[in-house]
């Protein structure tokens, strides 16, 4: 095996390892506690992506999409039966009044970007 082949194999294995670590071993973001309302920015994901809201209380979630990717043009909170179109650079408000404690996922329409709503 030539030297360049060995280098390519080594570099590729490192790159595969890096890809795995970079995308799949990501630590969960810190949770942000929402008061009466919370702002979420959509730009390459949700910021913040883990929010906490209170059971039985209405919380307004103001979502602003800054990312033009059509993947992110909808936000889906399936447990709350909400699929909401997010116009670019405009704020859309979703009101949640959760009746159950627990952790509920939200995601983009294609389920590639994720976030969590923790109901306390």
């Amino acid at each position: 095996m030539t030297l360049d082949a060995v280098i390519v194999i080594a570099a590729s294995m490192t790159a595969i390892g890096f890809t795995y670590w970079f995308f799949l071993m990501k630590k969960e973001e810190d949770m942000v506690v929402a008061g009466d309302s919370i702002d979420i920015t959509v730009d390459g994901g949700y910021h913040p992506s883990v929010i906490s809201i209170t059971k039985g209380k209405t919380t307004k979630i103001h979502i602003t999409r800054k990312d033009p990717s059509p993947c992110l043009e909808e936000v889906v909170l399936a447990d709350f039966k909400i699929r909401q179109y997010l116009p670019l650079h405009k704020t859309v408000t979703i009101e949640l009044t959760p009746q159950h404690v627990g952790e509920f996922q939200f995601s983009c329409g294609m389920h590639m970007f994720h976030g969590k709503v923790r109901v306390m």
């Binding site: 390459g44 994901g45 033009p68 993947c71």
Partner: peptide, 19 residues
């Protein structure tokens, strides 16, 4: 540009999609 515009923040966020 849309592909880059979506990729850069996604990478910052350590996520990836079709873009």
């Amino acid at each position: 540009w849309d592909y880059y515009r979506a990729t850069i923040p996604a990478l910052k966020n350590r996520t990836a999609n079709m873009d």
